[in-house]
Amino acid sequence: MSLCLPYPTLMLVTDRHRSSMSLRDAVRAAVSAGVDLVQLREPDLDDAEIERIARDLIGTIGPRRLVLNGRPGLAARLGLGVHLRDGQRNADVAARGDDRLLGRSIHEAGAVVPDDPPDYVQAGNVFATRTHPDRPGRGLDWLARVVENSPVPVLAIGGIDASNVAGVLRSGCHGIGVIDAILAAADPTVATVTLRQALDRAVRDQQVADTGNHTGILGRGTMI
């Protein structure tokens, strides 16, 4: 039984170099303002430093919302979910079947291994992004194709912000991941609230469009 991500999911992927405040403060602000899931992605830090930051974040936001990018061993030890990098296999995650979240990035539309799917896949980059300046955005049709081919929820990532999130959600994806839209903002709290509202509004508008029901407000879904 895979874990349930709230719909729509707003995931913050960290890059402390983009943030003008401490990572701890930025993450805390973002989670209190509406981020569902935090993926700690600081590839230039060693495991000891990641462990220190992760323990600190667990104390702030709890373990359920935190996922480590790569580092399956450390994630297992800390009881955290893990987001696998390219080349890491699901089987590398010790004790699969426990209730820790497992995600992975995918780069091709049909690339999810169906016999051992992760709990979610992260697909991108949808638009041009500072994180991967050499990779052109794949566009919304590509995202829609990923969604169509994925047996598990798809989180879209890459250049997404409040201005374009509605189109992203129309692809059928389950949520979004962002770095700059929150961390590079002058005020991560304001940025998160703006993004959260745009995301929830996009889902609501879509539901209204789908059902013609103008009174239905879609709930935030089950918290993981």
């Binding site: 780069h107 091709e108 991108g124 566009g139």
Partner: peptide, 14 residues
């Protein structure tokens, strides 16, 4: 066109 150009550029999505 994009599929052809990406393949020729050796760009993977990601």
């Amino acid at each position: 066109l994009r599929a052809v150009v990406d393949a020729a550029r050796g760009v993977r999505a990601g």
